[in-house]
């Protein structure tokens, strides 16, 4: 995509040919990203709806099911994500101030946090495969070594764990996509790719990453902290 004019000033952001001004371009990208985030909100929203419906329907039982989840690990992950979100916000700020080095460090920090998140997720998930708590055909409830009372109906437990794995799984998928996006962003920034001439790409990846954080902010109390 060619930029306006013959001489490209490497310090000036590129205005793509379909835009008139840089402000228009930046605002358009933000509007596009936000309307995409509307989509994401609705996608998770539908799952939250299913969750709240079943939670309401089986409210007596969901407490017993959630006792098998570890609120400590979940809490650690929440902090971790909040911190990564904070780093991401700093990265965007650094980009806006054209502090390239700080930007890279903050982005790297975000990726590290994302990997920590996935590792903790794996620590949580893998035992559940062994304990037949993954809602496939081999699902079994009550668990062999229950942490909680192990009560409640096996069928409803399967619904709970279906929701748990679907929602955290979809969220995990978003984390993975986020890692890929941040990596690409870092590489392209490092290579001084033509597409990365202003703060907008970082801002958009940042918006996405904050959204991932946002989802987890709700997932954590809903799955790990069900009050009696």
């Amino acid at each position: 995509m060619a930029a306006h004019g013959a001489a490209i000033d490497p310090n000036e952001p590129v205005v793509y040919e379909q835009y008139e001004t840089i402000e228009q371009q930046q605002e358009t990208y933000l509007v596009g990203m936000w309307s995409f985030l509307v989509t994401e909100v609705m996608m998770f929203g539908a799952l939250f709806l299913v969750y709240s419906l079943y939670r309401w329907k089986f409210r007596g039982e969901f407490f017993m099911f959630h006792e098998e989840l570890s609120w400590q690990w979940g809490g650690l992950n929440t902090m971790n994500l909040l911190f990564s979100s904070f780093l991401m916000a700093k990265a965007v700020q650094a980009t806006q101030l054209k502090r390239a080095k700080a930007q890279m460090w903050y982005l790297a920090g975000t990726i590290v946090c994302a990997f920590i998140f996935l590792i903790i997720k794996a620590i949580e998930w893998i035992p559940k495969f062994e304990h037949h708590l993954v809602p496939t055909a081999s699902f079994h409830w009550p668990p062999h070594e229950p942490h909680g009372s192990g009560g409640g109906s096996p069928e409803h437990a399967k619904i709970f764990y279906s929701l748990y794995f679907t929602m955290t799984g979809l969220h995990g998928l978003h984390v993975v996509i986020g890692i890929i996006a941040i990596t690409i962003l870092m590489v392209m920034t490092k290579l001084k790719a033509k597409a990365i001439t202003d703060y907008i790409p970082t801002e958009m990846v940042g918006l996405y990453w904050h959204f991932v954080d946002l989802v987890w902010i709700f997932l954590y109390p809903l799955f790990y902290l069900i009050p009696r």
Partner: peptide
């Protein structure tokens, strides 16, 4: 708080604010 400050909606244009709210309204 995340939406306002981390995502910068607090300082964004009205249009961005509209779309930031829209998803949650639709939900």
């Amino acid at each position: 708080q995340v939406i306002r400050f981390f995502m910068g909606v607090q300082y964004a244009s009205g249009l961005i604010k509209l779309y930031a709210v829209m998803g949650f309204v639709g939900f």
